[in-house]
Amino acid sequence: MADSAAFEILYKEYYPRVFALCRRLLLRRECAEDATQETFTRAFKTFQKYQSDKPFWHWIASIAHHHCIDQLRLRGRLQEADMSVEADLDNAASSEPLAEEVLIAGESHTQLSDAIDQLPEKYRIPFVMAYQVHLSYDEIADLLGLNRTHVGVLLLRAKLQLRSKLTESPQGESA
């Protein structure tokens, strides 16, 4: 019963964060709700395995992103990462201002959030893993079957696209 009470508290506290993670990975709200419920159901069944000395967020986020990636794989939406044009990265990078400069001027999280949603899945998933779940490059590499450098390439490409989108968008719209 003590487990049940503790789980209920954690459930209420972490539901929004888990939902946000699922929504970011799956994009559609109803899919994210289902995934969040499934995540907590799985967590409840295996709650005895949770080590209370480690952050709950790491544990529940692990269940959530594993489930979301499985869902994307089931739907055939998880695209293979293309690593063949690494040489173009520097050329593209040099022409765009960093997101920091754009966002500080615009002070808009919504603008950035929309831009993240528009990223292709092959960039969005490692991006969310890195900056929302805070997985290391090695952990992301294991999860997606890549190596650490490939993960870096995907993240940099994601950032390049974000910078590009943020630069194109009129800053005043969302400010």
């Binding site: 939902f19 946000a20 997101a99 999280h109 959030s113 993240i116 974000l162």
Partner: peptide
């Protein structure tokens, strides 16, 4: 900024 934006959304 990216981390903060994603956390802010949650």
């Amino acid at each position: 900024i990216f981390s903060k934006a994603l956390a802010f959304e949650a």
